[in-house]
Nucleic acid binder design. Structure first.
Lengths: 365, 365
DNA sequence: TTGTATGCGTTATCAG
DNA sequence: CTGATAACGCATACAA
């Protein structure tokens, strides 16, 4: 039986080779089906040109040090000459490594997440990893669909925003057994790893800062998402502890434009106006300040404004904006580093990375 | 010979099947190699559970209408029960369709490109396509490396920013024979398709607008990239034609932050100050206006400011910013539609889509 | 409506 | 340092 099998395999190999030759000739002579058909150059074609086996070509690509210099040169020349483009899809299937990392953010239109993605991309690209982008547009349920699709693609890792996830996301990621990094928040029980800061503590810090400045009547403008809610919660805690008045809050779904900030503060000013307002996003804060300029409400003398994230506009705007700095780019970089270490097989001890935040005092509050 | 081949194939199949069974048992009993190994559930496992062939499972996933309702139900139940996650990598290899589209932008930190990506993602996701993200950080040479990597992944389509590309990009994309959409500019000879607007015409329009407003002494603040250069060229053309003074220009590499705008206008004001300044980006324009506020230079009475892109901040800022609107989101949507049509096999007649632009008059100029 | 045979282009494994 | 062989998991083409 064994012998038979062996012969059989050989026969098949012969047949295969003949088929392969036919296929090759067809490609060379027949006019291409469409305008410019896909490149039919495979690893084997390169191998044939150099009279080596295809595994040698594979090694020239992946582990060049393991080849004799002459062989390497010859293979590389052939690759160049034939314009061979390795099929990474096939490689992924065979090696069970896609070299793709998926990242899920609410939206890249909010440039603060764009910064994190920048840091991530920068770190990952150094090791040849690429980024598959998913946006939920603040629709939490979208996250599940995105994660499913990503797992189907057998991404090597996943980066999520926040620690509150759609149903099933946690278990599915867990089952997949790939490294996962949650960002932009902290959790005592991360899916796998988390790098971020405490949104609640950031809200508390903002509250303490404003109260220390003597502002007693506080307001909050922010989003309806989990992280913004945590900031509000922290903010309110401190206000309560310090005996400040009840914090009025305006919550806008998926908002990060100045226009939203303007509209929100307009509503706030119409009632009993607060003395200081903490915005969950610098763009909202900018909108608040623009509206104040229009209404000749002096900032900070009549209304103090504090932002969040410390975007470039915080430093640029007049008066400059007091804000909470959160290391968005570094968050992406650290997330990338954690993933890379795990993908390299190294154990990661520090699974919870608190990057902290910093209240940056400027002119607006 | 034919008969022999046939027998041979059958024998191999038998051998294979036995191997397969062995493998299966091994998976079931042997402790998994790592902590939580990847899911070993394959299409065949689902098929076996339902007592159908694996192609039936494949059809349940891809063409459910072609199955008997009862079969479909059974397969779906098994998929659920076994938590089967289809391996799209294997599917891609077999079908030669990755269902991935790559997009290359200078940076998503500039939210205007984020808008385009949003439009693109939105359109593509409707058909199950996903987005591989590449950023050049305004380093033109990066584009070539990104495109190479993307082609290696056998992406189904590519979206590029601009029409000026790194060496070899054009030919490589052409050879790949996949649909390509260039955006954010126009070209009479696109790689494949292009959807955007004429940056030169936009610069001209800005120039005409400012001159019609009576401003004779003009300046320009922008980037060093190709599109910004074209806007400047158009701007200067009009200035020359209309007998305005020579346009002084400040060109900053890869800039889109208010701080850059502030610094640039500071330099401009130090010399013989212009009467109006056209900024290649609304964030730069915002920085200009912030600096003017600090220096008590009235906008528009002493310095008129015009922006570009019509970001949300243009409407929000005080005074509101006159800008050139460019339909960034729609650009992404149209790019996505063009790709989808081509990927569906439809011919695309309109390979050059001019979305135009619009000067939006507001208070700053 | 369902199944069989085959190949997609690469890498892992083991042998030399 | 190089090679033979067998997967990787699915979809296409055709047959029934």
């Amino acid at each position: 039986m064994l012998a038979l099998t062996w012969i059989v395999a050989n026969e098949v190999a012969l047949v295969k080779r003949r088929v392969s030759l036919v296929r090759q000739r067809a490609i060379a002579s027949v006019p291409r089906t469409r305008s410019t058909a896909a490149q039919p150059v495979r690893m084997e074609d390169v191998a044939r040109a150099v009279r080596v086996s295809s595994i040698t070509v594979s090694r020239a690509l992946n582990t060049p040090d393991k080849l004799a210099p002459a062989t390497l040169r010859a293979v590389r020349a052939a690759i160049e000459r034939l314009r061979y483009v390795p099929n990474l899809t096939a490689g992924s299937l065979a090696s069970n490594r896609s070299h793709i990392v998926a990242v899920v953010v609410p939206t890249i239109a909010n440039s603060i997440f764009a910064e994190t993605i920048n840091g991530l991309a920068q770190t990952l690209s150094q090791q040849g990893y690429q980024l598959l982008l998913g946006q939920t547009q603040y629709q939490v349920e979208e996250e599940a669909a995105l994660v499913d699709a990503f797992l189907g693609r057998r991404v090597d890792g996943v980066v999520l925003t926040g620690v509150a996830h759609a149903r099933g996301v946690r278990s599915r990621l867990h089952r997949a057994g790939i490294p996962v990094v949650e960002t932009w928040d902290l959790s005592a029980r991360p899916i796998d790893m988390v790098v971020g800061f405490s949104n609640r503590a950031a809200g508390q810090a903002a509250g303490r800062y404003l109260i220390a400045k003597g502002y007693q009547s506080l307001a909050f403008i922010g989003g309806t998402d989990d992280r913004s809610a945590k900031r509000l919660a922290g903010f309110r805690e401190v206000a309560r502890e310090c005996g400040a008045k009840e914090v009025s809050a305006v919550l806008l779904p998926a908002s990060s434009s100045p226009a939203d900030g303007s509209a929100a503060v307009a509503g706030l000013l119409a009632k009993k106006a607060p003395r200081a307002v903490f915005c969950s996003n610098d763009m909202l804060a900018a909108g608040v300040m623009f509206e104040c300029a229009r209404r000749q409400v002096d900032v900070p003398d009549r209304l103090a404004v504090m932002g969040f994230a410390d975007l470039p506009i915080a430093l640029g705007i007049e008066p400059s904006l007091t804000s909470v700095q959160v290391h968005a780019t570094e968050m992406g970089q650290r997330a990338g580093e954690l993933l890379l270490r795990r993908l390299a097989g190294d154990a990661v001890r520090e699974r919870i990375v608190d990057l902290g935040f910093a209240v940056v005092e400027r002119a607006s509050a």
